[in-house]
Amino acid sequence: MLYRLPEYIDPLQLADNRGELKGQIPVSGLDRLNDLLIADTGSVTVALFFGREGRLPKIEGTLETELNLCCQNCLQAVVWPVKHSVKLGIVKTIEQANRLPEDFEPLLINTDTVFLKEIIEDELLLTLPTYPKHPYDCLALHKDIKNSDTDTGQTHKKNPFSILANLKNTGDLNGSTKK
């Protein structure tokens, strides 16, 4: 069963209490991520587990969603499925971050409470490809569709510069008949 997620969390207190957060957050609420999406539909399923590994407070879990990105080849929507594993070590200083085990990423906190949405958004931004593309040759597909449209008897558009050719032939540029 999915529960409502809190807006702010105290990650150290949750780690001490072995807390867990499960729920969904709408994609439309992730402002920085929305700038990169064609559509902000759907939601992110969140399952985060807090605890300690020795003295290290940690967050582990998964984020699952489908994002609508813009294909960099054809500029059409491409659905990008995300199933991301989260493994964060909660630290307060850069020195602590440098001592984290290799399989942990640092979550640097300055205050007791943290905006949960920012953690989720940061993790999703890290999963995005630099150049999202369809897994197939979408340009060839769109070219074939365009060619089939012209083969079905569609008229060609008139060249907007054809009027300039007529002006050149008559020698009438701005009312001047200079030769």
Rank of each mutant, 00 (worst) to 15 (best):
D103M: 03
E121K: 07
F104E: 01
D122W: 01
N110Y: 07
V86F: 03
T93Y: 05
K92W: 03
G89P: 07
I119K: 10
E123D: 07
A97R: 02
T127R: 04
V91S: 11
G89A: 12
P81Y: 02
L88P: 00
L108M: 13
L107Y: 03
P101D: 00
E123L: 07
K87H: 10
K83S: 15
T93C: 08
S85A: 15
E95D: 15
T111F: 09
G89V: 13
N110G: 13
F115E: 11
P81F: 03
K87T: 12
T113A: 05
K87W: 04
T93P: 15
E95G: 11
R99C: 06
I120F: 08
W80Q: 08
P129V: 05
I94K: 08
L108I: 10
R99Q: 12
T93S: 11
K83P: 02
P81R: 05
F115I: 11
I90W: 09
L100H: 02
E102W: 00
V114I: 14
I120H: 05
W80C: 02
V114P: 01
P106S: 03
L108F: 02
H84F: 12
E95L: 07
L108C: 05
I90L: 10
I90T: 11
K92N: 08
L124S: 04
E105T: 09
E105N: 09
K87F: 10
L126N: 10
K83D: 15
G89R: 11
E102Y: 02
D103P: 11
N110L: 08
W80P: 00
T127F: 01
V91N: 11
T127I: 04
E121P: 06
E95I: 12
F115L: 13
